[in-house]
């Protein structure tokens, strides 16, 4: 609020946000910095704080004095300016992507690709359990894009009316058994995991990989008591990497990302528990234009290649 006050003529309803998509035609196209909207100031702070904030502030002041007639300082307005105002290559600012922990490797690669394609942009990731990410988004965390590891977690955000448009499934993931390198316990089927004396960790059922594990075990008619229900898939994998557990049910992509630190064992029941990965542009995205371009990149042929290389299935 404070940032907006220097201009006495500020619009009556600056927080109209989503309804005020796009700059009205009466408003002159602002400076290059314009897509750095007020709200993204927070997320940019990570890099060159003083400069960026000052820059954004200056751009805002300029814009406010130049264009006083409308609710142009709404966060999503800037996005339209970015994407339509200049058909390509004019994106800038930071795209904040909240993505499921299992997307870490492939999205980091796609983020670099994106930054190369659109100089002046920066992709900031927040990887974590899809549920905690969904919770942060619904409680107002400044994010542009949400990529979840399950339809259910995406639903948390769509139900809270947090997405712009319908989420699209961009990848699917399959479970695999992760064991120590060389598979010392000779695990070859899901049933082997129920052997006594074997320490198995699963994800907690509240996170997607745990829900999928439960589905797969139910499909196989098995009753498995793990030593721990881990809070996310990476912690489950870490327990195997550190050799604290003998096996874990994790995603194929995680096994691949871990390289030779673990060995993956496929099992047929995993087909019963495929996880859909939906991605969506968020309604309150501070940098919607660049965010949309990132979503497009993920669904493009190139994005799909990166994802399948990481072990994902096509949707």
């Amino acid at each position: 609020m404070h940032r907006r006050s220097p201009d006495g003529r500020r619009p009556p309803d600056p927080d109209k946000g989503p309804d005020a998509v796009g700059l009205p035609d009466s408003c002159p196209r602002p400076q290059r910095e314009w897509p750095v909207s007020t709200r993204s100031v927070r997320s940019i702070r990570r890099t060159r704080p003083a400069l960026r904030v000052a820059g954004a502030g200056a751009a805002l002041l300029l814009a406010l004095s130049a264009c006083s007639s409308s609710g142009s300082d709404s966060g999503s307005g800037s996005g339209e300016a970015g994407s339509s105002g200049s058909s390509s290559g004019k994106l800038s600012g930071t795209v904040t992507v909240f993505a499921a922990a299992s997307l870490k490797e492939s999205f980091t690669e796609l983020g670099k690709e994106f930054e190369e394609r659109h100089p002046g942009t920066e992709v900031a990731f927040n990887f974590g359990g899809s549920d905690s990410l969904a919770a942060s988004i619904t409680s107002g965390a400044p994010a542009d894009v949400f990529a979840a590891a399950s339809g259910r977690t995406m639903e948390i955000v769509t139900k809270a009316d947090g997405t712009a448009g319908t989420p699209a499934v961009f990848a699917r993931n399959q479970l695999e058994i992760a064991t120590a390198p060389g598979n010392p316990d000779r695990i070859s089927t899901l049933k082997d995991l129920t052997r006594s004396g074997l320490k198995v960790v699963l994800c907690d059922e509240s996170v997607p990989c745990g829900a999928a594990a439960r589905k797969a075990l139910a499909a196989a008619g098995l009753d498995l008591t793990p030593v721990s229900y881990e809070q996310d898939v990476k912690s489950a994998l870490t327990k195997v990497e550190l050799d604290e557990a003998d096996a874990a049910l994790v995603y194929k992509t995680d096994v691949r990302a871990a390289g030779d630190k673990v060995e993956g064992v496929d099992f047929p029941e995993s087909a019963e528990a495929l996880n859909d990965y939906p991605i969506a542009l968020l309604k309150d995205a501070p940098n919607a234009g660049a965010a949309k371009a990132f979503v497009d990149l993920v669904s493009s042929a190139e994005g799909q290649k990166v994802l399948t290389d990481a072990g994902f299935r096509k949707p």
């Binding site: 907690d204 793990p226 030593v227 229900y229």
Partner: peptide, 11 residues
């Protein structure tokens, strides 16, 4: 949660 994991009734 890092050292002892998470299992109802035990940890």
């Amino acid at each position: 949660i890092t050292f002892a994991g998470n299992f109802p009734g035990r940890t």
